[in-house]
Design a protein around this nucleic acid. Structure first.
Length: 579
DNA sequence: GCCGTTTTCGGCCCGACTGTTTTCAGTCG
C-alpha cells in the first residue's frame, strides 16, 4: 500500500487531467495540479488530518480538503467518479503520447470513439483521423512516432546516463567559435534521479554555428524541431536533447528559466508580477517601461526578486522560496564536504577489486577515512565465514594509515565493517559479541521484499534497535525503473532511527539513490542522521558519490546531517555511542 | 478552485515551435 498522500496526489492529478480533457476551466485544473504536488510532498499523512489541517497544505482550500476527506473516508470522490464516467481512463492515457495533449485526446474520443493507445494507432492506419479538424498528415506522423517512443522507453533515463551524455555535448559545444558560455540546465542540473530530456544552454551572439555543431553530433538520430533559438534532437541513447541559444547578456535569466522546475519558475514569475516586473528567459523587465533590469547572472535575477540565489536541487517549490525570503535556506552538503565512504565492498565477497586497490583509490579521492563493509554470511552465495572476516580485519589493521591522502596527514584511516543482512524477522548474521568487533555495521534488506507492511516495518525497526547496527543500508531496496521500494511504514522506521541513533543511508549508486529525496525530507524532520555511501563494488564506482550528494541536496541536507562529512573523531564517537 | 504587500473579487507565468491554418490553437517545458 502506498502512502495515503501518494494515492491522494495521484487522484488529484487525475482530476486535473480530466478537467483539462473535458475542456473545464484551465485555472481550476492548474489548482488541482498544484494541490496534488503539495499533498504528495506534505510531511504529515493526509489520512490523519481533519479539514482544518488539510487546508494548511498550500493550494488546498475548503473544496479540495472536502474531496480529500471524502476519499479517505469512503475510498472514492463523487466529482472524480462523474468525470471518470464521462472519460475512459484510456483517453487520459493518450495524453502521455508526446505531441498529443488534452484537446486532441478529447477530439479523437468524441469524434471517433478512440479510447486507448492501440485504438488510436489503428485509427491512424485506417486513415480515420484525416477528416478531423486540426489533424493533418504531420499530426498523424507525430502521433505514431510518439506512440513508438512511449512503448520503447517509458520516457526517462537514469541520471548517470544523462550526465555522461550532457557533459560530452557541453564539451563539444563549448569549443564552437562564438560560444561564450555553455551548461546543462533542466532536471539534470537539479539532480533529479531520472531525466526525461536534457536541456543545454549556450550564450552566443550568433546561434547558427552552435546549432550546426549540435545537429551534427554523431549520436543525433533525428531532428525533432529547429528554430532560431531552439533546436530539439533525438539521440541514439533514446534521450531527447533541447538546445537553446541566448544572447550573452541574457545568460542568468535563461539559466534560471531553463533550470526550472516548472513549479519553481511559476513562483518566481509570480513574485516578479507582484513587483510590477516580468520575468522571462530574456531577463527581468519593468512592465511599464519595458526596460530590462537584470539578466546576466542568476544571482542578479533572484536578488532583484528579493531572494538569495537558490541552489538548483532545491528549486521544486517545496518551500525554498519561503525559506529564501526568511533567510533560512540550508547550507547544503557538497561533495567536497565528504571525508569518507562508509559502505564499500572488495573481492572477498562480490566486489571486483582487492582491498588494497579499493583503499588506494579511496585515498586518491582525498578521503580521511574509509570503511570496508563486505557481506556477512547470511547472504550464503558470498561464502563469508568468521575466519575470513577476521583475516580481513587483520589486513585492514595492517594497512590502516599507510595510504597517503590529502584528507588526513597521517594517511587514510581504514575502518573494518560489514554489510549485515536483515533477515525476515529483523535479525542479523552474527551474535552480539562478534558484532562488537567491527568498527562499523551497515544493515540492509536483501530478500523477502514482499512481506506484509507490518512485517517489513517491524523488521527494519528491529534492525535499528540492534545496538551494533550503525547504518540502515539502501533502506527501501528499490531499483530505479526495475523494482519498487518495499512497502514499510517509513515514518515508523524514521522515528526508530531517531530514537536509537541509527543513521539512514543515501545509497549513491544511480540504480538505487535510496533513500530518495522525498523520503529524506520526511526523515529529516525526525532529526535522523544520514550517510551518503557509494556501495562501490569496484574502483570506478567510488565516483558515484556525486549522485548521492545531489540527492542529499534535494533532501535539504547540510553537512551536519551527514555523518561521513564529520571529522574522524566525531564519527568514531557516533559509532561508539551505538556500541 | 485558490489566494491576498492589488486581500473576499479578479486575477491566475511566459515564450517557442509546429501544423494547420490565412491569423491561430495546441503542445511543451
Amino acid at each position: 500500500m502506498a502512502r495515503s498522500n501518494d494515492e491522494v496526489a495521484a487522484l488529484l492529478q487525475e482530476y486535473a487531467d480530466l478537467i483539462s480533457i473535458t475542456g473545464g476551466d484551465a485555472f481550476r485544473a492548474r489548482v488541482y495540479e498544484k494541490a496534488a504536488r503539495a499533498v504528495g510532498g506534505h510531511h504529515a499523512d493526509v489520512a490523519t488530518l481533519g479539514l482544518k489541517g488539510l487546508q494548511e497544505i498550500p493550494n488546498v482550500g475548503k473544496s479540495i480538503a472536502q474531496k480529500v476527506r471524502e476519499y479517505v473516508d469512503s475510498g472514492t470522490v463523487s466529482a472524480v467518479e462523474e468525470l471518470r464516467a464521462r472519460i475512459p481512463d484510456g483517453v487520459r492515457r493518450l495524453t502521455a503520447i508526446p505531441t498529443l495533449g488534452p484537446k486532441k485526446a478529447l477530439a479523437v474520443y468524441e469524434e471517433l470513439g478512440v479510447s486507448s493507445v492501440e485504438e488510436l494507432a489503428d485509427a491512424i492506419h485506417q486513415e480515420r483521423l484525416r477528416d478531423l479538424k486540426g489533424f493533418g498528415p504531420r499530426t498523424e506522423e507525430n502521433i505514431l512516432h510518439g506512440i513508438e517512443l512511449l512503448r520503447a522507453s517509458g520516457g526517462r533515463v537514469r541520471i548517470d546516463v544523462a550526465t555522461e551524455l550532457a557533459e560530452s555535448i557541453v564539451a563539444v559545444l563549448s569549443a564552437v567559435d562564438g560560444c561564450e558560455k555553455c551548461a546543462y540546465a533542466g532536471s539534470l542540473r537539479r539532480c533529479r534521479e531520472t531525466i526525461g530530456d536534457i536541456d543545454i544552454l549556450v550564450a552566443a551572439e550568433e546561434s547558427a554555428p552552435v546549432m550546426r555543431a549540435f545537429t551534427a553530433l554523431p549520436y543525433v538520430t533525428e531532428i525533432i524541431g529547429q528554430g532560431a533559438t531552439k533546436t530539439s534532437v533525438r539521440t541514439a541513447k533514446g534521450l531527447d536533447v533541447d538546445l537553446r541559444v541566448v544572447p550573452p547578456d541574457s545568460w542568468g535569466a535563461a539559466l534560471q528559466y531553463f533550470t526550472g522546475s516548472k513549479a519553481h519558475n511559476i513562483r518566481t514569475r509570480e513574485r516578479a508580477v507582484h513587483q510590477g516586473l516580468k520575468l522571462s528567459e530574456y531577463g527581468l523587465f519593468d512592465v511599464e517601461t519595458g526596460e530590462k533590469i537584470v539578466s546576466e547572472t542568476e544571482e542578479e535575477v533572484y536578488g532583484r526578486l528579493g531572494l538569495p540565489w537558490i541552489p538548483p536541487p532545491l528549486r521544486e517549490d517545496r518551500g525554498e522560496i519561503e525559506a529564501g525570503l526568511r533567510g533560512e535556506l540550508p547550507d547544503l552538503v557538497t561533495e567536497a564536504d565528504l571525508r569518507g565512504d562508509l559502505h564499500t565492498h572488495t573481492d572477498l565477497t562480490d566486489g571486483l577489486a582487492p582491498l588494497e586497490e579499493m583503499a588506494a583509490a579511496a585515498a586518491r579521492c582525498g578521503y580521511a577515512y574509509y570503511a570496508i563493509t563486505d557481506h556477512a554470511p547470511d547472504l550464503t552465495m558470498q561464502r563469508m565465514t568468521d575466519e575470513r572476516m577476521l583475516a580481513q580485519r587483520e589486513r585492514v589493521r595492517e594497512l590502516d594509515g599507510t595510504f597517503p591522502t590529502k584528507g588526513r596527514r597521517g594517511g587514510l584511516r581504514l575502518l573494518h565493517g560489514t554489510e549485515l543482512n536483515i533477515g525476515p524477522e529483523g535479525g542479523v548474521d552474527w551474535p552480539e559479541d562478534f558484532l562488537a568487533g567491527f568498527d562499523l555495521c551497515v544493515a540492509s534488506v536483501h530478500s523477502h521484499f514482499n512481506q506484509s507492511r507490518d512485517a517489513l516495518t517491524r523488521r527494519l525497526v528491529r534492525a535499528c534497535e540492534n545496538p551494533h547496527v550503525h547504518i540502515i543500508g539502501h533502506p527501501t531496496t528499490r531499483l530505479i525503473g526495475k523494482r519498487p521500494g518495499i512497502d514499510a511504514d517509513l515514518d515508523a522506521v524514521f522515528a526508530a532511527c531517531a530514537r536509537t541513533g541509527t543513521a539512514l543511508e543515501i545509497n549513491a549508486h544511480p540504480h538505487r539513490l535510496d533513500l530518495r529525496d522525498e523520503d529524506i525530507l520526511r526523515a529529516r524532520r525526525y532529526g535522523v542522521k544520514f550517510a551518503v555511501n557509494s556501495d562501490a563494488h569496484a574502483v570506478p564506482q567510488l565516483d558515484v558519490m556525486r549522485y548521492g550528494i545531489g540527492t542529499a541536496q534535494r533532501g535539504w541536507l547540510t553537512g551536519d546531517d551527514v555523518i561521513n562529512t564529520w571529522p574522524e573523531r566525531r564519527l568514531r564517537s557516533f559509532l561508539r555511542g551505538r556500541g
